[in-house]
């Protein structure tokens, strides 16, 4: 097979794309945050994120978030193949802006919670969770 100029170009592009792959997860975590905040820089504090320091089983890690005065809270796992975890939208009858659930973590990583406040501001909290056995399969 002869390598035409077009083939060579395609190969080069493929190699460039492949070299970007490891960076993708972190980049898309930032994208997920930007999509939620609209580019506004979140302030530290105002939102509480509870997660275990060490999770033995990454398949089910209990986490809870609380942010008084928030309208929505997004949870992001920076080290997962898909960083989005969940978005909690609080309605008029929410008794408190808090929620607890169980999530999957692929490995030791930083979990981020960002709350959208009623006044339009954003608050951020993060915790590093050590995971003994990853929970995303693969």
């Amino acid at each position: 097979m002869r390598l035409t100029r077009r083939d060579a170009l395609a190969l080069g592009l493929g190699a460039t794309a492949a070299s970007f792959l490891p960076l993708r997860a972190v980049a898309s975590a930032e994208e997920a945050i930007a999509a939620f905040t609209g580019g506004v820089e979140p302030a530290e504090g105002g939102v509480t994120l509870n997660a275990p320091e060490i999770a033995e089983n990454g398949n089910t890690v209990p986490v809870s978030v609380e942010a008084p005065g928030a309208t929505a809270i997004i949870l992001i796992a920076t080290g997962n193949p898909q960083p989005g975890v969940a978005t909690f939208n609080f309605g008029p009858l929410a008794g408190a802006q808090s929620a607890a659930t169980r999530i999957r973590l692929a490995g030791t990583q930083e979990v981020i919670a960002i709350a959208k406040m009623a006044d339009g501001g954003f608050a951020r909290a993060s915790r590093v969770v050590k995971v003994t056995i990853g929970g995303c399969g693969g």
Binding site: A77, Q82, N89, R104
Partner: peptide, 10 residues
Amino acid sequence: IDVEMQPAIS
């Protein structure tokens, strides 16, 4: 409450 869930929910 209205929760949007992604595959990272257990």
